[in-house]
Design a protein around this nucleic acid. Sequence first.
DNA 1: TAGTTTTATGAAAGCACTTTCATTGTATAC
DNA 2: GTATACAATGAAAGTGCTTTCATAAAACTA
Lengths: 336, 336
Amino acid sequence: MIPKNKKSATIYDVAELSGVSIATISRVLNAPEKVNSETRARVFKAIDDLAFVPKAEARARALRHTGRIGVITPFFTAPSFVQRLRGLAGALSKERYELVIYTVESTDQLINYLSSLPITGNLDGLVIMSLSIGEEDARRLLEHNLPTVLIEYPHPTLSSVEIDDAAGGRMAAEYLIAKGHRRIAFLGDTDTAEYSIHPISQRLVGFRQALLDAHIPLPEEFVRLAPYTQDQTRQVASDLLRISSPPTAIFAATDFQALGVLKAARQLGVHVPEQLAVIGFDDLDLAEYVDLTTVRQYLDESGRLAIEILLSRIADPSRPAQHIHIPLDIVERATA
Amino acid sequence: MIPKNKKSATIYDVAELSGVSIATISRVLNAPEKVNSETRARVFKAIDDLAFVPKAEARARALRHTGRIGVITPFFTAPSFVQRLRGLAGALSKERYELVIYTVESTDQLINYLSSLPITGNLDGLVIMSLSIGEEDARRLLEHNLPTVLIEYPHPTLSSVEIDDAAGGRMAAEYLIAKGHRRIAFLGDTDTAEYSIHPISQRLVGFRQALLDAHIPLPEEFVRLAPYTQDQTRQVASDLLRISSPPTAIFAATDFQALGVLKAARQLGVHVPEQLAVIGFDDLDLAEYVDLTTVRQYLDESGRLAIEILLSRIADPSRPAQHIHIPLDIVERATA
DNA sequence: TAGTTTTATGAAAGCACTTTCATTGTATAC
DNA sequence: GTATACAATGAAAGTGCTTTCATAAAACTA
């Protein structure tokens, strides 16, 4: 009860007060089920009385790991980040690891994290999600032995979970072509944050190539970009639908933007899919809710896999870097 | 230079490489003037070559400069959790705090977190989201001086951000009544996880009361519950819409379930809002995409506020517990 | 009732450092 | 040329924790 006005309590003080050995105290803290419930109660009482808090540093030293996995992610602006994160969290909750989130909203922030996290040694592993990193950063991660896996950004020496966006763009185009469309437009976003990657560009590349291969023209007015907001996307889609000879199909580079297209169509009285086919990309949860046909990229799975690779790397650091490609496929629903 | 592909370097490795004892390494780091300059140079060289970082110090320093805030949250099954979390993360990213996420999927897990985090969590503050906690837990949090704020669950001695779900239910009912509806149904979920709170019940209470006050009957067949999945909600809504005299309006207890209702209506060729008004609850991002009229509860804001309270509590622990009520309002869009 | 398994505990050996103390070899004083 | 003060270093003892291993007691099994 009386706070020791000396130094803060240690495990030895608790052991003495509760009349057991320090080993038992440690067990109460880390594996309570292994100690008799009466003893446990006594120990907890002592812990409370002494306001004992185990020192994290000593603990980490003895354990030789911290039990913490970090995730650097762009701030949750896009739903896809959240869904990947969900995959990460789900995979981790079965393991004895804490999940520490670092959201980045500026290049400075990213640089900061990337330079401090590897050297503070507070993490057993790191996942870097949908963010691009430099050579210097990669070298530092490697040098300080912080096992890392990247999602959506390939790197030769670090493990990664990669998505072939160009292939996805191609799939979308081929799907629409197979459905008989010949006037197919693209709607992407204008995100330009230098720290973030821009998979949309690759989706356009693949899309373009597929049309070229099929000898279908892609007039420049069929390629539109809008800021990543519902309203502006709707506006741009609306413009696109009102040109003199509008497309019969639109490939929206993300499901989120597909919703804007759908809304524009609704407002203009354009029937989907009869008058306009719409295909998205991502297969967010909400794609299912609104029956959106889309290119599925298994977002949750990407997170799950990242953790899987990371944990195997932590278990055996000598393992070589792995590069996993997640396949894409088309989910045919009601809009195309 | 050659990165030891084993664990990261310790003071012993440096000692070996530079041919001195570990005591000298320690001195170079902590009291360089006590070491011969040639030796010092050799040691620094070795430190560089091995990319050695004294762990204890690095950790201690890191811990001194950045605090850690924990969030206990139900696993990201419902979008509303994610949106509150987004509010939390957004508010925190401007501060020097790490965000540690603890997702709970079972009562055991929750109990575990609640009993271990105040002691071994090394946290500066804790947010408990949409989860119910016992007296014992609250006492422990208080006793171990872990500043805590609850979201969606009131408690006399802990701070909280509260939502008046009953009032929300009432608002929804009153809105529909004002629109002239007299046959109004309720569709909620059947979530029964004992660790989680169930705001839906309160929404129903308020809804019921408002109908009673307005002398509008609520036949039992107008109160439906469905498991919290898109498909089952749609099914239940479908059944509801096919009874002999179906409702002209449905209050879905969450936006997510409102989507199921909307889908059922679409499939049955029931026009919204002409033949059926639908109002949701939450104002999720997706409510806007689908133009859903709903009771808005400022989810992001709830997270932001929780952090605000928490940080002020951390800054000045003597502050009394705060209880903030977030007002609700109706967002009128296209479905009711 | 002896034999076996299980449960609960403690002793002691780490872990990555810091610090004290003893031991060198040298520079300085007389 | 001897006594003395330093300077530079290492051996070893702490630090606060976890974990392995051994053991005693209790609980089953045959």
